[in-house]
């Protein structure tokens, strides 16, 4: 994991060299947090995306929700949610899940106007997500297209942590066990009715606090322990 994370810093510098001047380059110029820092002390940004599908080559981002963790508390004052204006109709099958309509999307902002805000918030912080490939790959795909370089970020993935907890306890994992809203009740977290990018980012942030506090009860938790290999 140590070398992998060194790899992240290496990837960051490499992408920084490739990126066109602008928001991504500015983001990449900020060093990542020290893997030995205590996740009870540092800032972490929980993020969730709604997309038109699962393939970053064909599908696009529909909405972005994020919220910051500071001092091991979720700060709702940092909550941010934006709808992306996209260049196509929203496929009906995905609309059932995210419930974003074409009208709402048309009232949103283009992704190139939203990404700078995301980068400004994420600079120097780990990204907290539940099942990281979606966020990582969709933002990266947009970056390649807009700035000619990938999106590099240290990732904390609550799905991976959940998986580790199951394995450590010798529990067999049933289909669906690792889904965000099936993991939360295990930590006595409430069920939210709404499902959108912000409420899911918030749900992920709460889940992380619960997982970290249970894995490292009342003591410092090293960021490196939580970072994903991706």
């Amino acid at each position: 994991m140590f070398t992998r994370f060194l790899g992240k810093e290496y990837q960051r510098k490499k992408a920084l060299a490739q990126a066109a001047p602008g928001p991504l380059a500015e983001y990449l110029a900020t060093p990542f947090p020290d893997k030995n820092s205590d996740c009870r002390e540092i800032e972490i940004v929980a993020i969730d995306l709604e997309t038109t599908g699962l393939d970053p080559r064909k599908d696009v981002i529909l909405s972005i929700g994020l919220v910051h963790i500071e001092q091991f508390s979720v700060k709702l004052s940092t909550a941010w949610h934006s709808i992306v204006r996209i260049d196509r109709d929203i496929p009906g099958e995905s609309a059932v899940i995210h419930q974003i309509t074409d009208d709402q999307s048309a009232a949103g902002a283009p992704i190139e106007e939203l990404l700078p805000e995301v980068f400004a918030r994420m600079a120097g912080k780990p990204m907290l997500v539940h099942y990281s490939p979606i966020e990582q790959n969709f933002i990266s795909a947009a970056c390649q297209r807009l700035y000619g370089a990938p999106f590099v970020v240290p990732i904390i993935d609550t799905l991976e942590i959940g998986q580790r907890v199951f394995v450590r306890r010798n529990h067999t994992i049933q289909p669906g066990d690792l889904r965000l809203f099936n993991l939360r009740p295990r930590y006595n977290l409430p069920q939210y009715k709404a499902h959108n990018a912000l409420s899911d980012a918030l749900a992920t942030a709460e889940l992380f606090l619960a997982m970290a506090d249970n894995l490292y009860p009342g003591r410092p938790c090293r960021l490196g322990e939580f970072l994903s290999n991706r």
Binding site: F72, V74, S77, A79, D213, N214
Partner: peptide
């Protein structure tokens, strides 16, 4: 009101 809220988790036995 919501934007003034912070959320915190305490595991069982936490102070």
């Amino acid at each position: 009101l919501p934007k003034d809220i912070e959320i915190r988790y305490l595991r069982r036995g936490g102070t």
